[in-house]
């Protein structure tokens, strides 16, 4: 059992590392084409990473070890999330069930590392980005936990792989009101957590509107490379989770070669579809004022809570 899980984990990590920058490239291309431009190409994020690897890394006086270690922690947490979430296959390790709270905590370790990197820069921008980022992370956590809790009630377990497998076995549950409400809430939570519009504009130049950019404004060279790769991995993993919950078919339930291949192909297709839809939606949406973001997050929490109450009504009736 563990050998299968280990194979799938390795495949997931490799696929996500290769595909996440391509996903970001695809999203930028979709946005460019909708704006009438040609765009830099799907491979551009990989070119960015290659360039950052050869650039100098500058460390300002006053920064400490956190500026060097933080980016590594972010990447490692992103890789760990890719191992734990059922993306290609839903076969967890025997001694490490991919429990909801464990996955969320690992994600939050990365969030904290990024926030500390922002604070360590010792500039006003870094602190500002860090403060906004942590406020949003604090307000997103209830939505994420309650939404996945809603999805776990019909299954009886909060292990993500069990939830995905239960949805494969019972197609009707994917289209149920519980599922739809919870997934809408999760979409908003993912958008907030990964710093996409309308919560944060990833390509802004105005420091006072930055959240994620402000935290990395001081990093250069390979520090910046790790930070970018870590953020892209988190985006890919969370979109992959949404894909596995929305369209669970294709997720491998064993470690055979055929199942793994199908899993990889369907994962790539799901990521491409979700990424394109997200990028297209971003073209039509403007960034929200920072102090309107809690209202958006409160709304998503209400949806998640409604999903939980709906799941009780369904179980009672059924």
């Amino acid at each position: 059992m563990n050998a299968g899980a280990a194979t799938l984990a390795a495949v997931q990590v490799v696929v996500m590392v290769v595909v996440s920058p391509l996903l970001v490239g695809l999203m930028r291309q979709v946005r460019a084409r909708l704006e009438g431009r040609v765009g830099a190409g799907v491979l551009q994020p990989w070119r960015d990473l290659r360039k950052l690897a050869i650039k100098e890394t500058l460390r300002a006086a006053g920064t400490g070890r956190v500026s060097a270690v933080g980016p590594l922690v972010l990447v490692v947490s992103g890789l760990l999330v890719c191992v734990l979430i059922p993306l290609v296959g839903a076969v967890p390790f025997v001694s490490l069930p991919d429990d909801l709270f464990v996955v969320v905590s690992v994600l939050l370790v990365g969030t904290v590392a990024l926030a500390l990197v922002g604070l360590d820069a010792g500039t006003a921008f870094g602190g500002m980005g860090s403060s906004r980022h942590m406020t949003i992370a604090a307000l997103v956590e209830p939505t994420v936990l309650v939404a996945v809790y809603a999805l776990s009630i019909p299954v009886g377990s909060s292990a993500l792989s069990r939830i995905v497998v239960a949805r494969i076995d019972d197609p009707a549950s994917v289209a149920s009101p519980v599922s739809l409400l919870a997934l809408v809430a999760l979409v908003i939570a993912v958008v907030a957590e990964t710093g996409r519009l309308p919560v944060d504009n990833p390509s802004t130049h105005l420091e006072l509107t930055m959240i994620h950019e402000a935290m990395v404004i001081e990093s250069s060279g390979r520090d910046l490379g790790w930070l970018e790769l870590g953020s892209w991995l988190r985006l890919g993993a969370l979109l992959g989770l949404l894909g596995s919950l929305l369209v669970p078919w294709g997720v491998a339930q064993d470690a055979s070669v055929a199942a793994v291949l199908i899993g990889v192909v369907t994962l790539v297709l799901k990521l491409a579809a979700l990424g394109s839809v997200l990028a297209a939606a971003e073209v039509f949406v403007a960034k929200l004022r920072l102090f309107r973001v809690p209202e958006l997050l409160a709304g998503s929490f209400v949806l998640a809570f409604l999903a939980v109450t709906a799941s009780y009504l369904v179980v009672q009736a059924g």
Binding site: L116, L119, D120, M134, A138
Partner: peptide
């Protein structure tokens, strides 16, 4: 109760990032 625990966990996260980051990091 789950929602309350989740919100407190999130706020605790922010509180201690603040406490550690402001006191010990940067200048």
């Amino acid at each position: 109760a789950v929602a309350v625990v989740a919100l407190t966990a999130g706020l605790a996260l922010m509180t201690f990032v603040k406490a550690y980051g402001i006191a010990f990091l940067a200048r």
